[in-house]
């Protein structure tokens, strides 16, 4: 029984050990499987990402063809898959020449810069890698090979022509513009000259009243009639009326008697006229001087003291002014005086 028990116990231990070993092996197997999957995943991710980046470069340089003849122009296109913070430095070429740099083309997904390039020497030339800055990071384009071939010319079969004379360039606006500007300036000066010396003078002459050419007496009479026609005092403009009336009289005295009456006060005018009368240089009587005094003093009252004379007084003053002008005359110079 004991032996049986021992056998049973032994069997039980073995079974348990086997089970433990089996579980251990199972755990190891599952661990290695997880490790394998992770490695595969890592490799998949690495190769996938590499292939993705290699298929879509940020910057790319392309040419239409790699075979050109001397002087033939091809287009070099640099594409950038970014629109912001892109710096495309000046194109650097060796053996080839940039004919033209086209305007930067802005697309929704990127920028395209096109250049027209050419080569004037036969041979193979590399367009070197161009450094483009995108978001402060430098990217390089691929280098490209361009073969520039010569053109085979069979000089024996070419028809010969005499040397052509030098041909002038066709004339454009720039060649004429200096002459055009000069002509315009001259035209403006002539126009101004015509306006200033002809039209303006003519206009000035037209504006000038006709009485300027009249003798002092006629001028004064003309102005008095003009003043009457204005009907100033009839329209309650007595002050203006007397201002103009005294201006006419003073103007007449200034022109006819050569006394600067326009710059003198009433008292001064009367004083000078009295002196002239005393010196017998004017032909007038005391009554006229009295009338002149009364008239000028009345005018002063109207002009400076808001006095408003009645209509008969104004008419009387108008009559007196005519009389004063009529009687105030310089003494005619006799022939003897003239000889003296």
């Amino acid at each position: 029984m004991c032996v049986n028990k021992f056998k049973e116990l032994k069997k039980g231990n073995i079974h348990r050990k086997l089970e433990e070993n089996f579980k251990e092996a199972q755990a190891k197997c599952s661990l290695s499987f997880v490790k394998g999957v992770r490695e595969i995943g890592f490799f998949c991710f690495f190769f996938l990402s590499f292939s993705v980046f290699s298929q879509n470069p940020v910057v790319k340089a392309q040419i239409e063809t790699s075979q050109i003849r001397i002087g033939e122009q091809i287009e070099l296109k640099i594409s950038v898959k970014e629109t912001k913070n892109v710096i495309i430095p000046k194109l650097k070429l060796k053996g080839l020449e940039v004919v033209d740099s086209l305007k930067l083309d802005t697309l929704r997904t990127g920028l395209v810069q096109k250049y027209i390039i050419t080569g004037f020497d036969s041979g193979s030339y590399y367009i070197p890698q161009q450094q483009i800055f995108v978001r402060n990071q430098a990217y390089l384009t691929d280098s490209l090979l361009v073969n520039v071939a010569t053109v085979a010319v069979d000089t024996t079969k070419i028809k010969k022509f005499p040397i052509k004379s030098i041909k002038k360039e066709p004339l454009v606006f720039d060649d004429y513009k200096i002459y055009i500007y000069l002509a315009l300036v001259i035209l403006v000066i002539i126009g101004f000259w015509i306006y200033y010396f002809v039209i303006r003078k003519r206009k000035h002459k037209e504006d000038e009243p006709t009485y300027r050419v009249l003798p002092p007496y006629e001028e004064a009479m003309y102005k008095l009639n003009e003043l009457d026609e204005k009907k100033l005092w009839q329209n309650n403009k007595v002050k203006e009326y007397y201002s103009e009336l005294t201006d006419i009289i003073r103007g007449y005295i200034e022109r006819e008697l050569k006394i600067p009456a326009l710059e003198k006060t009433t008292d001064e005018i009367l004083e000078v006229i009295k002196d002239c009368h005393t010196a017998n240089t004017i032909t007038t009587d005391k009554q006229t001087i009295q009338k002149l005094k009364a008239l000028l003093q009345e005018a002063d009252l109207v002009k400076f003291a808001k006095s408003k004379p009645l209509a008969p007084e104004i008419e009387e003053d108008r009559k007196d002014s005519e009389e004063v002008i009529h009687n105030l005359k310089p003494k005619p110079v006799s022939k003897d005086d003239e000889l003296e």
Binding site: T265, T266, E268, D300, F304, A305, K306
Partner: peptide, 10 residues
């Protein structure tokens, strides 16, 4: 006088 005339200024 209650008003000024050019003589006063002069």
């Amino acid at each position: 006088r209650g008003y000024v005339i050019p003589e006063d200024v002069r």
